[in-house]
Design a protein around this nucleic acid. Structure first.
Lengths: 208, 208
DNA sequence: GACAAGATACATTCATGGATGTATGTTTGA
DNA sequence: TCAAACATACATCCATGAATGTATCTTGTC
């Protein structure tokens, strides 16, 4: 039954996107066939090819749809005024993985259900690389906070940035590979806070 | 030219294994074809099918060949006598990723070049799951050290075990996704040591 | 406001290629 | 000479992508 309402058309597009995320999460990107996606969405491959150029394009559309401006929180350093701001940025991102199911699932697909191949580099770049570049951002963030007197000036921001990155990636990866081990909302903030507090100017006597 | 010496036969088997590791690392498991592997090894698929049942079997053989008794270091807790022992076990494992190139490459293939699918579960289990189960081991290890007076008894081994696991997985993952960010041999020990030292009975005054 | 005309939103079909697995050669070392 | 150690050939399957079919919504026109 062709030629539907614009609204119906948009529904089928979203339906395909939703099913694709599930299928990718179950089967992995490479082994997922457009046939299977179309079947489970209740359409044929014709519908998929109408809305998306091919599987890679479908995957990219999924990313655009889900990620949106998620990582933009890491963009502007100037807004970081104290350690708590930094903690909030990091924890908000982590918490969203748990809160926003589609975001969490998609991230898991990107990291652990998709074999890295050159063809997919531009698609994975947005997700994988942004996370990879986070070290630099963290070092810069710590420098910024140090200049504001929020961090002991005698510390090495390079080294602390790496340590912070280790914490972040560790939490990220553990949750990715097994969400039952820790909770992004309940456990992550405590770990990051205790680490960031350890960077404070005076060890434990800042009762100002 | 069939019917070779036993030694020659073993050479082709190893050659196929070596090439397979390279191909898997480059192309990813799913997209690697036995055709490509055979070509680059200088044989035909016939040779591959002679030595291995199929691709999954080849992958499993690779794992057996490389991993060997690598994780057995984590087996017996009883040998842990002090914090340094624990640090050594962890650091040795991490360092081996960098030192033993085949081990490092294979681990990367398992985690980041292979889409998780049911068919491969028994194969990935040995690598992925052992790492996943490490939390439990770490908690137990910390309990053991606490009973030996190596760790402040007022601390929570459950929480510290998770924190240690976060460190370990963080370092592991960062190196996996980009080995240039940190060195397993040079950087990892320092990070783990400073964490473990923080668990000592008396904060900073144990100059016994 | 009714009615073509054309575009849309798919379904169907087909051609192609690539990968797998198996069956069958073929040569030579033991 | 037999069987090991491959090479070759073959049958099968499945996914892709494009081409084509088609029914219906939309739009312009009177």
């Amino acid at each position: 039954m062709p030629r539907k309402t614009k609204e119906e058309t948009e529904q089928t597009r979203r339906r395909i996107l939703d099913v694709a995320l599930d299928v990718f999460a179950e089967t992995g990107y490479t082994r997922s066939s457009l046939q299977d996606i179309a079947d489970r969405a209740g359409f044929t491959r014709g519908a998929v090819y109408w809305h998306f150029k091919n599987k890679a394009d479908l995957f990219a559309a999924l990313g655009d749809d889900i990620e949106g401006e998620s990582i933009e929180a890491f963009e502007d350093l100037s807004r970081l005024r104290n350690r708590q701001d930094l903690q909030r940025v990091l924890c908000d991102y982590l918490a969203r993985l748990e809160t926003d199911e589609r975001f969490g699932t998609f991230s898991r697909v990107v990291w652990y259900r998709t074999e890295w191949v050159e063809e997919l580099e531009p698609l994975l770049r947005s997700s994988r690389h942004e996370l990879r570049d986070l070290v630099q951002w963290m070092v810069a963030a710590l420098r910024q906070l140090a200049s504001l007197g929020e961090i002991d000036p005698r510390r090495d921001p390079q080294k602390d940035g790496l340590a912070l990155y280790i914490h972040f990636v560790g939490i990220y990866t553990i949750w990715m590979t097994d969400p039952t081990v820790l909770s992004m909302v309940d456990d992550a903030p405590g770990h990051l806070k205790s680490f960031l507090d350890g960077l404070a100017p005076r060890p434990l006597a800042d009762a100002d």
